[in-house]
């Protein structure tokens, strides 16, 4: 067990095997290499990616497939090698969420750079989908056409 400090959850104890290792860090946070996933609550698709090193650093993430059922991408060979990926079933995929203001309906997901975790060896990476059409901001709840111009 390891005891870590977090701003959101206070002091928590985590098992060593729950630690997720980003051996190259996360872009803009290259020094942050160890994280743990903490569910927002038991029933929601939201989780926090909490840094072990920096108490105040936690990213909010979600499983992309809940909000973007057609989301798909190909993982490049380098990432497959770096993460030691052997089979697709071992993978856990999340996307980072950003909230521009206070209105959570404005929350966006970064589909251009998903977090890929190999559950077999706990290695993880933010994979940049260089050739995809995805962007860093996709609204989780696309704005409905309230004027009803479809008819």
């Amino acid at each position: 067990m390891r005891t870590i400090n977090t701003v959101r959850f206070g002091e928590i104890e985590i098992e060593e095997e729950k630690i997720i290792k980003f051996s190259a860090g996360i872009p803009a946070f290259e020094e942050e290499q160890e994280f743990v996933i903490i569910p927002y609550d038991e029933e929601s698709p939201f989780v926090f990616l909490q840094s072990l090193k920096t108490a105040e650093l936690a990213f909010l993430m979600t499983s992309p497939f809940v909000f973007f059922p057609e989301y798909q991408f190909e993982i490049d060979d380098d990432s497959i090698e770096a993460l030691g990926i052997e089979k697709e079933e071992d993978l856990l995929i999340y996307v980072l969420l950003t909230l521009p203001g206070k209105d959570i309906k404005q929350m966006t997901a970064n589909l251009l750079a998903p977090i890929v975790i190999n559950q077999e060896n706990h290695q993880a990476k933010q994979v940049i989908l260089e050739k995809s059409e995805y962007k860093t901001k996709h609204l989780l709840f696309p704005v409905q056409n309230i004027t009803g111009g479809d008819e």
Partner: peptide, 30 residues
């Protein structure tokens, strides 16, 4: 090797994603 603007955009987005979490309340979303 990345195109600079893609990598930069992801760094910027990650910084924004990291800057907002402390007391986020998702009750409405859930």
């Amino acid at each position: 090797i990345y195109r600079g603007e893609i990598y930069k955009a992801i760094m910027e987005e990650n910084k924004k994603a990291a800057a907002q979490i402390a007391d986020i309340d998702l009750t409405d979303l859930i």
